[in-house]
């Protein structure tokens, strides 16, 4: 194994660990409810999940190599439908991927 690859992994990995761990030690529970910091932290979760959904779906929307609209619509529709029926994140996720792959297969066939 090349030393430069190992060193790069170790340095960046150590920083990633610090970014993930150190902020968990912050004592934030004495902050007054409704303060700007409290509202910022409360909004961070939904904002992060929304951002990650948009960022992960964007390449699929921009994909000009396949039937993006139909497959994406089928996958998103399946997630919405199955989540409404089951309230299960795992089942809705798997159903969405199955529907997306199935729509892709049907259109490509």
């Amino acid at each position: 194994m090349r030393l430069e690859v190992l060193a790069l992994a170790l340095i960046v990995g150590a920083c990633n660990w610090a970014f993930r761990y150190v902020p968990t030690r912050a004592n934030l529970h004495e902050l007054p409810s409704g303060s700007p910091v409290t509202r910022f932290l409360a909004a961070t979760g939904p904002a992060a999940i929304g951002t990650l959904f948009v960022a992960s779906a964007l390449p699929l929307v921009n994909d000009r190599s396949g039937p993006a609209t139909l497959t994406l619509g089928t996958g998103v529709g399946a997630v919405l439908l199955i989540y409404a029926a089951t309230r299960s994140v795992a089942v809705a996720t798997l159903a969405g991927a199955l529907a997306y792959g199935g729509a892709f297969w049907l259109v490509a066939a």
């Binding site: 699929l60 919405l80 969405g96």
Partner: peptide
């Protein structure tokens, strides 16, 4: 393709849950 949609599907389901 289906596996490639797994993470967007996960984030969407998580979004619905919160």
């Amino acid at each position: 393709a289906g596996l490639g949609f797994m993470l967007p599907a996960l984030f969407l389901a998580l979004l619905l849950s919160v």
